[in-house]
């Protein structure tokens, strides 16, 4: 019983870590490449969850919901980038914080206008509805394993795009020296719009995957946003590897924290960040300023 209990917790921690990674990797890329601190990233996670809820309701199928929801999320990202974020590239972080904070207010109200303030749930697709029996009284839902698998697939896809393709090369170059990339004749405006839309799609996808296991409720993006910030800070801004390690660390600490030290669970995550920063102010994989 003991061992399988910890195995279940470990699986939960990894699954949570993967979801965080999807959100945090977008956040860290936006900062690394575009120099943008995006507080509205949690809203995109929420958007994903609500799209999954709404489209599953309409089409009767989560897969169709995700398939239709992803392009919508990307479109929203593109619009937000063109009409708000793109004015901020040369501005101080202060104004980025304020503008994206205002975006949160707007997204929260839009969510309430479109979908109301009720808490919703999304049914797990019937193929994945079962669970694995580990011992007599311990089981693990198949859908949670599916979340991890889907995140691994996305992470591998991202790795391939960023490390092996020409687009990835430009993205990496952009992260290390924006001006030089521009000087080499790359259309930076288009690149930024693309990267931003992809970041939104990643956060939205995480929200869609999470919808059937967590409920869908107003303000759900904000907790995710702040934890993702912690992940980015721990990993080092601009580093995908850092986002991955940070997300797994936070997944483990918060899941096992809830089991072992329930009163201190939500504080432990921040304490971990403080300790890591005292040791490495630029984060685990960040470049020293």
């Amino acid at each position: 019983m003991e061992l399988s209990f910890y195995l279940v917790q470990l699986l939960n921690a990894v699954q949570y870590g993967f979801l965080l990674f999807l959100v945090a990797s977008g956040l860290t890329l936006l900062f690394g490449i575009m120099g943008i601190i995006n507080l509205a990233h949690g809203s995109f996670y929420m958007l994903g969850s609500y799209l999954a809820y709404w489209l599953t309701d309409v089409t009767g199928n989560l897969w169709l919901g995700i398939l239709l929801g992803l392009p919508i999320a990307m479109m929203v990202g593109y619009i937000v980038e063109r009409f708000a974020i793109s004015f901020l590239y040369k501005r101080d972080h202060l104004y980025q914080v304020l503008l994206t904070f205002a975006l949160i207010l707007i997204f929260n109200e839009l969510q309430q206008i479109l979908w109301g303030t009720d808490v919703h749930s999304v049914p797990i697709p019937s193929i994945l509805a079962g669970s694995f029996q580990l011992t007599e009284n311990q089981s693990y839902p198949v859908y949670r394993l599916f979340i991890s698998a889907a995140c691994i697939a996305v992470a591998c896809g991202m790795y391939w795009v960023i490390q092996k393709t020409r687009l990835g090369m430009i993205i990496r170059a952009g992260a290390s020296n924006r001006e030089m990339v521009q000087a080499l004749g790359i259309n930076v405006n288009r690149l930024f719009a693309f990267v931003f839309s992809m970041g939104v799609a990643l956060a939205g996808f995480a929200g869609m995957l999470a919808a059937p296991v967590d409920s869908v409720y107003p303000g759900m993006g904000e907790n995710v946003l702040i934890i993702s910030f912690v992940v980015v800070v721990i990993g080092g801004t601009g580093s995908i590897k850092g986002a991955f390690v940070g997300a797994m660390l936070i997944g483990l600490v918060s899941t096992f924290g809830k089991v072992l030290l329930p009163e201190m669970a939500s504080i432990m995550v921040y304490a971990l960040m403080a300790v890591i920063l005292m040791w490495r102010p630029q984060g685990l994989f960040g470049r020293a300023a």
Partner: peptide
């Protein structure tokens, strides 16, 4: 205080 820029923003937020 030992951090700056975006890190400072995020750390004060998290703490």
């Amino acid at each position: 205080i030992r951090t700056s820029g975006i890190y400072f923003i995020m750390i004060t937020l998290a703490l």
